[in-house]
């Protein structure tokens, strides 16, 4: 069966993909529907949803909550994807080196991985962003630094089981370089679990980003959902909508990505699903 047919067998995954596409479209068209800066005053402050021309209300400074959500979608998706790419990159390099060479290199790299897994990741991320000063780059780096160990362990395991197969030995006899064998021959054979773990990591990255922004560690120049909730928490008593809607946006996005990730997993490892 083709990838799509296998993917579509999981109904949840299809629903998730639908939500995700909607959110991506919202992010892409944010500047079209809300051309003004989402930080700017757009009307009467503290307007409830549906009043004064605000679909989802406005906050204490008269900022449009709906505009913030649309522009925040860009931030969340961008940081989620970038951080995951960087983390997967680090994880593949570390895992490939450890699994391919084994011995002392493996031992050293796995000790480092273990240490990074022991450290409480969210506090580590807070610390890194605080030291580097909040910006998109520092947030991406911080999330990547706390997320790569899982990928490294996975890739190492795959490399360990593949490195002595016949096709790899054939490559050695042909005189291929180690780098070429690692990247060109072994890596493509272990991509599917990496893709699955990567897709689930995007969701975690978005959750970490929103937590950082909520604590005031977001990039001060770009709108994000976590920032909106953090700014609205003092208004809980008088304006519940400022916190509520961006939270629903985070929930839906993360849920959709998790569902899609499971769908990809079912499609790429069909045997795994039939077993359970």
């Amino acid at each position: 069966m083709t990838f799509w047919k296998l993917f579509a067998r999981n109904r949840g995954a299809v629903v998730g993909l639908g939500i995700l596409v909607l959110i991506a479209v919202m992010a892409a068209t944010a500047s079209l529907f809300f051309p003004a800066d989402p930080f700017s005053l757009a009307g009467k402050p503290m307007s409830p949803p549906g009043e004064n021309g605000f679909l989802l209300g406005s906050d204490s400074l008269g900022r449009d909550v709906a505009a913030g959500i649309a522009h925040g979608a860009k931030t969340s998706l961008l940081i989620g994807l970038l951080a995951t790419l960087v983390a997967v990159g680090i994880g593949i390099v570390m895992g490939a080196l450890a699994g391919y060479y084994g011995g002392p290199i493996d031992n050293l790299l796995m000790r480092v991985t273990e240490m990074f897994q022991t450290i409480p990741s969210f506090i580590f991320a807070i610390l890194l962003v605080a030291i580097m000063k909040p910006s998109i780059e520092s947030i991406v780096i911080a999330i990547a630094v706390v997320s790569w160990p899982a990928v490294a362990r996975l890739v190492r395991g795959e490399f360990l089981s593949l490195r002595n197969r016949e096709f790899v030995q054939a490559c050695h006899t042909l005189g291929m370089s180690d780098v070429r064998i690692m990247l060109g021959e072994i890596l493509p054979n272990c991509l599917s679990p990496v893709i699955v773990i990567g897709s689930l990591m995007v969701a975690t990255a978005i959750l970490i980003e929103s937590g950082l922004a909520f604590l005031g560690l977001g990039d001060p120049n770009i709108m994000s959902w976590g920032f909106q909730i953090g700014a609205g928490r003092t208004l809980l008593r008088s304006a519940w909508w400022v916190c509520t809607f961006p939270g629903i946006a985070i929930l839906l996005t993360v849920l959709a990505i998790n569902l899609v990730g499971e769908g990809i997993n079912d499609a790429l490892n069909p045997r795994l699903r039939e077993r359970t």
């Binding site: 937590g211 809980l236 939270g247 929930l251």
Partner: peptide, 22 residues
């Protein structure tokens, strides 16, 4: 489980405050 797994903690906290405290 799927939904709670996807919910940001701080948001759950704020929503619980709105409902059960305020």
């Amino acid at each position: 489980a799927l939904i709670t797994y996807a919910t940001p903690l701080f948001w759950v906290g704020l929503m619980l405050i709105v409902v059960f405290s305020l």
